[in-house]
Design a protein around this nucleic acid. Structure first.
Ligand SMILES: [Mn+2]
Ligand SMILES: [Mn+2]
Ligand SMILES: [Zn+2]
Ligand SMILES: [Zn+2]
Lengths: 141, 141
DNA sequence: GTTGATAATGAAAATCATTTTCAATAAGTA
DNA sequence: TACTTATTGAAAATGATTTTCATTATCAAC
């Protein structure tokens, strides 16, 4: 099953209807290599679906976030950008020039985080790690 | 020299004037154990300075950020909160219940971050690490 | 395939946070 | 003290997001 089919199935599962607008928005989000904000999604989606309203973009993205398919990404350029979520435990590497986002794994700092929390009398719940730099393409420019 | 004196001196250094409003806002920011957004600073400062306008809070906080005295903190509850900056390289541990923020040091992952970036053909520029959990006081409630 | 209940849509209005404008005021230097 | 000019706060402007609501479209039941 393709990712898009999985996403649409999840929508259906929750009793939501499959509409042309939702399909178009999902297409954009699944294709994008970088996190997008609602206005960016709106502009990109309108190329193929000019009558789309931005309200529908807001509603659809919020809904996809609740379904665990999109996640919010915080960057210097804004905290209202969303990226398709990858299953499992990962962290992000983001290009400061073009915004390309890459999930990476392999680092495991949990124990050290636990120790720091303990030292400070905190009960650790979560952690947030994000790397930023220039992606391959953007280094050459 | 007290921290407040250092802050006021930095303002003066940049040709800015010392006003009662700025002093009151700085008092609140230096006293707070957690990151605050402009509206919170406004409410807290108005207790001692009821005629204060919120525009002045926005302007003062932006200015303190540019001076490197405040930093923006990103949290689930909002990305417009500011915390007094600590000199040197630190990371934050934030209570998800009360917002208390603690700087910690001692962890050094730079080499591993470098390696991850390299593996992904990125030129590393920065990293962002933040831990969250329940602080000592909030665990007991 | 029709029908009907109701979820979804988009335009417009409302709301909320932040920024800009501007006349009055206050800080700090001479 | 007098003067220059940065600062202030009210009000207006802006920009992003949310709400409202009449219309339309989906999809399950016939
Ligand atoms: Mn991790
Ligand atoms: Mn670090
Ligand atoms: Zn790039
Ligand atoms: Zn706490």
């Amino acid at each position: 099953m393709q990712t898009k089919e999985i996403w649409m199935a999840k929508l259906k599962e929750k009793g939501m209807r499959i509409t042309a607008q939702r399909e178009a928005i999902v297409d954009i989000l699944l294709t994008s290599e970088k996190a997008l904000d609602p206005l960016e999604v709106y502009d990109l989606t309108r190329r193929s679906h000019p009558s789309l309203g931005i309200v529908t973009v807001y509603r659809t993205m919020e809904c996809l976030e609740h379904l665990g398919l999109l996640q919010k990404v915080h960057q210097a350029c804004g905290c209202n950008k969303y990226l398709k979520l990858k299953a499992g435990h990962h962290h992000l590497l983001i290009c400061t020039n073009c915004g390309r986002a890459v999930y990476f794994e392999g680092l495991n700092f949990e124990d050290q985080f636990e120790k720091v929390a303990e030292n400070n009398n905190f009960q650790l719940q979560d952690h947030w790690l994000q790397l930023s730099g220039l992606c391959g393409r953007c280094q050459k420019i």
